Simulated assay, not measured.
Amino acid sequence: MRLFVALSLPEEVREGLGMLGTGLPGARWVAEDNLHLTLRFVGDVDGAQARDLDDTLSAIDAPGFELTLQGLATFGDGMKLRSLYAGVAPNPALTHLQAKVESAVVRAGLPAERRKFKPHVTLARFKGDPGPKLGLYLKDHSLLRIGPFTADHFVLYSSRLGAEGPHYTEEVTYDLERVGAF
């Protein structure tokens, strides 16, 4: 089973991001239903590891928080361009949650992540360089701002690859403490 931990996005946020999905040659746009903010990619695990991971994620105690998406950028450039993403406004509560998720993954016996956390929502992947249209696209959408919206839970997803791309299934939802709760 291939797993990852992420924040799901409210429908109105996914719809807003989905409206950006046009105008770039060679872009493979992420389906609206698959848009999310990854906290930790886990990878392939067996049933026992998945249960251990669920146990450690269930123990996370963290508050909910407000989140804002802002700006567009890319990972890679030129012939090594990999993806287009929506950035996330700096948010200590998000960083705190991600650190707790990382700790839970390691406590479940899985290897630590070596890459630094860069919060983002992947919008499209590229097979090649979209040419000069990318610069224009980024300029046209440079003021993107969606939110704030409330992050009140996170999700353990499974991912299955199919002919039409990946299919994500919410396996377990973990509530965060309500914002402003007593």
Score class of each variant (00 low, 15 high):
Met1Ala: 03
Phe4Asp: 02
Leu9Cys: 08
Glu11His: 15
Leu17Cys: 05
Leu17Trp: 08
Met19Tyr: 12
Thr22His: 15
Leu24Thr: 00
Gly26Glu: 07
Val30Tyr: 03
Val30Thr: 09
Asn34Tyr: 10
Asn34Gly: 06
His36Val: 06
His36Lys: 07
Thr38Leu: 08
Thr38Tyr: 15
Phe41Thr: 10
Val42Trp: 07
Gly43Val: 07
Asp44Gln: 13
Gln49Val: 08
Ala50His: 13
Asp52Pro: 00
Asp52Tyr: 15
Thr56Pro: 00
Ala59His: 01
Glu66Gln: 15
Leu69Phe: 03
Leu69Gly: 06
Thr74Cys: 12
Gly76Ser: 07
Asp77Ile: 01
Lys80Trp: 14
Ser83Phe: 11
Leu84Met: 05
Val88Trp: 12
Val88Gln: 05
Ala89Tyr: 10
Pro90Ser: 01
Leu94Gln: 11
Leu94Glu: 03
Leu94Tyr: 09
His96Leu: 00
Gln98His: 12
Lys100Tyr: 09
Val106Ala: 11
Val106Ile: 15
Pro111Trp: 13
Pro111Lys: 02
Pro111Ser: 06
Ala112Leu: 13
Glu113His: 12
Glu113Leu: 02
Arg114Asn: 04
Phe117Gln: 08
Leu123Gln: 11
Arg125Trp: 07
Phe126Gln: 01
Phe126His: 01
Pro132Arg: 12
Lys133Phe: 09
Leu134His: 10
Leu136Ala: 08
Leu138Ala: 03
Leu138Trp: 02
Lys139Gln: 09
Asp140Gly: 11
Leu144Ile: 06
Leu144Asp: 14
Phe149His: 11
Asp152Lys: 10
Ser158Asp: 10
Ser158Pro: 08
Ser159Trp: 09
Ala163Ser: 14
Pro166Val: 14
Asp175Cys: 05
Leu176Ala: 12
Gly180Thr: 04
